[in-house]
C-alpha cells in the first residue's frame, strides 16, 4: 500500500476514476439523507421539534472535522517518515477542506443552539468547544504552511505541527469535557447514535457517508491540481535552467 503513496503518477491514474465515483455516490447519499431528513422523518418533540433536522448537516460536519484532521495527521506522519510525496500532497489538500467542514459544523451548531439554548455560542457544549479548537488547529496548519518559503519546508513544518496537534487532540477533548461537565446542567439534546430511533439513524449515516465521499472526491481533485501545478513548475524551472 505504501508504494501507492510514493508516486504521483500512479495516484493520478487511480484518482481519475475513483474521484468521479466518490462524487456520484456522495451526491446520491447526501440527496437521500436530505430527502429523508427534511421530508420523511417525523418531528421529535423531545428533541425540540423540527430544529433537530439540522443534525443531518451538523453531525456529518462534526465527524468530518475530527476525521479529516486525523487523516491529515496520518498523511503528515507517512510523509515525515517515508517522504512519499503523495502523502504530503494529501495533507496539504485536506487542510482547507477540513477547515471548511469544521466551520460548517460551528455555523450549523450555533444556528441550532440559538432556539435550543437561546444563545448563538454555548460555551458549555463540549463537542462545539472541541470542534472550535480543531478549527484553530487547521488555521494554524494552513498559516504555517503559507508562511514557509519553499515547498519542502512547508511540508516539513506542516507535518510537525499536524502531528503535535494530533497528539494534543485527546488532551484538549478531555479538558473541554471536564470544563463543560462542571458548568452544564443535563443537556436536553443527547444525539448519541445507537440509542437513536432507526428512522433517524439511517438518514444520519447516509448523510455522514455522503459528506465523507464528497470530501474524499474533493481532496483527490485538489491533489490532482497540486500535482499538475508542481509538474508545470518543474518544467518551467528546467526551461529556465536551459537543459
Amino acid at each position: 500500500m505504501f508504494s501507492w503513496f510514493a508516486n504521483p503518477h500512479r495516484f493520478l491514474t487511480l484518482s481519475s476514476w475513483l474521484a468521479p465515483i466518490c462524487y456520484a455516490l456522495g451526491a446520491l447519499l447526501i440527496a437521500w439523507g436530505l430527502w429523508q431528513g427534511l421530508w420523511i422523518v417525523p418531528k421529535d418533540e423531545y428533541q425540540g421539534g423540527d430544529i433537530m433536522r439540522v443534525m443531518f448537516l451538523h453531525v456529518p460536519a462534526a465527524w468530518l472535522a475530527m476525521a479529516s484532521y486525523m487523516g491529515m495527521a496520518v498523511m503528515s506522519f507517512i510523509w515525515f517518515i517515508w517522504r512519499h510525496e503523495v502523502a504530503d500532497i494529501a495533507a496539504k489538500a485536506i487542510a482547507p477542506l477540513g477547515a471548511t467542514w469544521t466551520a460548517l459544523c460551528l455555523v450549523t451548531g450555533s444556528i441550532w443552539g440559538k432556539p435550543t439554548w437561546g444563545t448563538w455560542w454555548q460555551w458549555d457544549d463540549a463537542r462545539m468547544m472541541s470542534v472550535l479548537f480543531m478549527f484553530f488547529l487547521f488555521l494554524g496548519y494552513m498559516a504555517l504552511r503559507g508562511a514557509m518559503d519553499t515547498r519542502q519546508k512547508a511540508a516539513r513544518a506542516g507535518a510537525i505541527l499536524a502531528m503535535v496537534g494530533a497528539i494534543n487532540v485527546p488532551l484538549i477533548k478531555f479538558s473541554v469535557d471536564l470544563f463543560t461537565s462542571l458548568h452544564q446542567d443535563a443537556s436536553v439534546i443527547t444525539v448519541d447514535g445507537p440509542k437513536m430511533a432507526a428512522v433517524y439513524l439511517w438518514p444520519l449515516l447516509a448523510s455522514g457517508l455522503g459528506h465523507s465521499l464528497l470530501f474524499a472526491g474533493l481532496v483527490m481533485t485538489l491533489m490532482q491540481a497540486e500535482i499538475w501545478q508542481r509538474r508545470a513548475a518543474q518544467i518551467r524551472a528546467r526551461l529556465i535552467a536551459g537543459d
Partner: peptide
C-alpha cells in the same frame, strides 16, 4: 414549526459553503 427559519438558514449556509468549496476546487483543478 416555529424554528423553520433556523433550519432553512443552516441548510442554505451549508449549500453555500459546500458549493463554494466544490467550485473553488474545480476551478483550481
Amino acid at each position: 414549526d416555529k424554528n423553520a427559519a433556523f433550519i432553512w438558514a443552516s441548510y442554505a449556509l451549508g449549500a453555500v459553503m459546500i458549493g463554494g468549496a466544490i467550485l473553488t476546487v474545480m476551478i483550481k483543478a
